[in-house]
Amino acid sequence: MTVDATREAPEGGIGDGDGNADVEAADAVSEAAEVRRFWARLGLPGLVDVHTHFMPERVLRKVWAYFDAAGAMHNGVEWPITYRLEEDERVALIREFGVRAFTAMLYPHKAGMAQWLNQWAADFAGRTPDCLHTSTLFPEPGVEAYVREAVESGARIFKAHVQVGAYDPADELLDPVWGLLAEAGTPVVIHCGSGPAPGKHTGPEPIGRVLARHPRLRLVIAHMGMPEYVEFLDLAERYGEVRLDTTMSFTDFAERMTPFPRPALPRLADLGDRILLGSDFPNIPYPYLHQLHALERLDLGDAWLRAVCHDNGARLFGL
């Protein structure tokens, strides 16, 4: 997605103050109970979600404004924000879902933003202990210094967004950064697939050049690399530290636009120890529970679901 919209988002979503707040709150409680039943049936202590969005409010409002206009941008497909809530309500709800660890995926769309976002994210992690301390980056002078500072300050995961930032991940300014993160073993969730709209540097080829130089880099390919699913599975099979997150993949919403190729399901099963649960909460156009059901209906078995929904993330972050 991009974040160049500037207008405030209209009201909508759960608890939007339209007179149905009590009903919507009851719906949220009911959904939370269903989510907890999902992971309890699998014998899990909860969920680990590596792709959730918490960011400064004025930035988040612009993101929501973009999605409110997304129908006009993406072939008339509307993208209502299901969880248009205040920050404390969003944190409380994801905890009610039983998510043991989540992230504050945030990203700059231009130079000069990353350090400010990282400062906000460090503060958010400090007051939200179940949020993995998240940082971001951009190809700009000084990037190696502030990424090193973030790592030394306890950042546990980074977010990079090739589409929004409109940069080549193989930019020479980022080369020492990828080396630093590979050496530190710090995972990087990277949106480098060409969905929902392609960019100049999206797709498997640019990030493949990065991996050729830094094969130990712990990249987590967001959205399973949508729509280049097969090509990103190729990269995961080639590089042992590459992982993929499930964000939006396999849901009814995504399947209508970019269906996952069913002949590739055995490869997904074989990579079961490197697939991580991601949701895009709160910026999703359907209930959180639907992502879990979408994974369940792949029929890859309970052991695969346990690994994806909890164990792989718990192992990666030492939970």
Rank of each mutant, 00 (worst) to 15 (best):
E31A: 09
W116C: 08
R61P: 00
G154L: 01
L233Q: 01
N20L: 09
V242P: 03
V59F: 08
V147T: 13
P108V: 11
A111N: 04
R100H: 04
V23Q: 12
Y167E: 02
V188S: 05
T246K: 14
L233S: 10
D234K: 00
E172V: 03
L289D: 07
G71R: 08
H53V: 01
E34K: 11
A25C: 02
P204G: 07
E34M: 10
R156K: 14
E255S: 12
P261R: 09
F158W: 01
F38M: 01
L211C: 09
M73R: 15
L85I: 07
S279F: 02
E86I: 05
G208N: 01
T6A: 14
S153Q: 14
D4M: 04
G17S: 04
R7I: 08
L235Y: 04
R37D: 09
E8N: 12
G43C: 10
I221H: 00
D273N: 13
E231A: 10
P263D: 13
D273H: 13
A303R: 06
R274C: 07
E149R: 04
P206S: 06
Y229I: 03
L173N: 01
T52F: 03
G199C: 10
A182S: 11
I157F: 00
Q291T: 08
I284Q: 10
R7D: 15
P45L: 02
M1D: 08
C192V: 12
E237A: 12
P129I: 12
F260N: 12
H214M: 00
R37L: 03
L106K: 02
H293M: 04
S279P: 04
L289M: 04
T247Y: 00
R243K: 05
G185Y: 02
L235R: 03
G19L: 09
L298N: 06
R148K: 14
Y66W: 15
P287I: 05
E89S: 15
K110I: 04
A212H: 01
Y83L: 10
P139E: 00
